[in-house]
């Protein structure tokens, strides 16, 4: 099983490395937010500790995981239409290995992109302790894994790419806005702040903000870790079921 996952992971990682344009376009949106939106915040009072970058960069990273992770299903839909998925399924490699191998590739890709974003943010004036950045990247990795796996499971259960894109867009946009990614929910009116407490990504991004400030042992970080890990477990189980259902025999 581990060997199978490794083979699938290797194949898709090499595919990613072959298409450098994809690698870049996947980063384009968070990059634009960083470069064209982030500077607007530097003179505002966000009501948070540290510089505005310390609040904003975690949001951009979680946004990358959210957008980058949720839409990976489009890739497997393309493979499915080409017959690549069937070709791989007609081998002894099981569905869960096919799912996890691909997911692992996405995690590696999104973490690599996150590292690039952090380096760029440094040029804008973002500062954070190395340990905090590593902890933040761990959050990004777990969240990416959860969303990418779920995205594949969903994609295998819809008929067409437009259908998949519609469902995913409808789910992702409100979740992104209601989780306080771009601006902290401390600025929000009570009802929005209350609503955002039902969105798991809120806890992830708040925890990343804390670790970027060098605070590791507090309730916010613990809640973020618990919610993110719980979400990942749930998503992986759901994804494996969805994937198996679509290809089972």
């Amino acid at each position: 099983m581990l060997g199978d996952i490794g083979v699938v992971f290797g194949r898709y990682l090499r595919a990613t490395l072959r298409s450098k344009t994809n690698l870049f376009f996947g980063m384009l949106q968070p990059l634009l937010f960083l470069a064209l939106f982030g500077p607007l915040l530097t003179r505002l009072d966000l009501g948070t500790a540290g510089s505005s970058w310390q609040t904003f960069v975690p949001g951009v990273l979680v946004q990358l995981a959210l957008l980058g992770g949720s839409f990976v299903g489009l890739g497997i839909l393309m493979d499915r239409n080409l017959g690549v998925v069937d070709r791989m399924r007609a081998t002894p490699v099981g569905p869960v290995a096919l799912l996890l191998g691909r997911t692992l590739r996405d995690v590696v890709q999104l973490v690599a992109q996150s590292v690039l974003l952090v380096l760029l943010a440094l040029a804008f004036g973002f500062r954070a302790p190395v340990a905090g950045v590593l902890a933040g990247l761990a959050f990004v990795a777990v969240l990416s894994m959860a969303l990418a796996a779920l995205s594949y499971g969903l994609a295998m259960n819809v008929r067409t790419s437009p259908e998949f894109a519609a469902v995913t867009n409808t789910a992702v946009m409100p979740l992104m806005l209601a989780s306080g990614l771009l601006l902290p929910m401390s600025l929000a009116p009570g009802w929005l702040d209350g609503m955002s407490r039902a969105v798991p990504f809120r806890y992830t991004v708040d925890a990343v903000r804390e670790v970027f400030l060098g605070h590791y042992a507090n309730g916010t970080v613990a809640a973020g870790a618990a919610v993110t890990a719980g979400l990942a477990a749930l998503c992986l189980v759901a994804a494996a079921r969805l994937f198996r259902r679509a290809v089972s025999l």
């Binding site: 298409s19 690549v84 070709r87 081998t91």
Partner: peptide
């Protein structure tokens, strides 16, 4: 078994060698 679908099942951007070697690896 080997199975070749009507649609073929090739990834257009994947080189031939890579497809062949990976398929062998998928067969362990």
């Amino acid at each position: 078994i080997g199975y070749v679908a009507q649609s073929g099942g090739l990834d257009p951007s994947c080189p031939v060698r890579e497809e062949l070697v990976t398929q062998g690896r998928l067969h362990r």
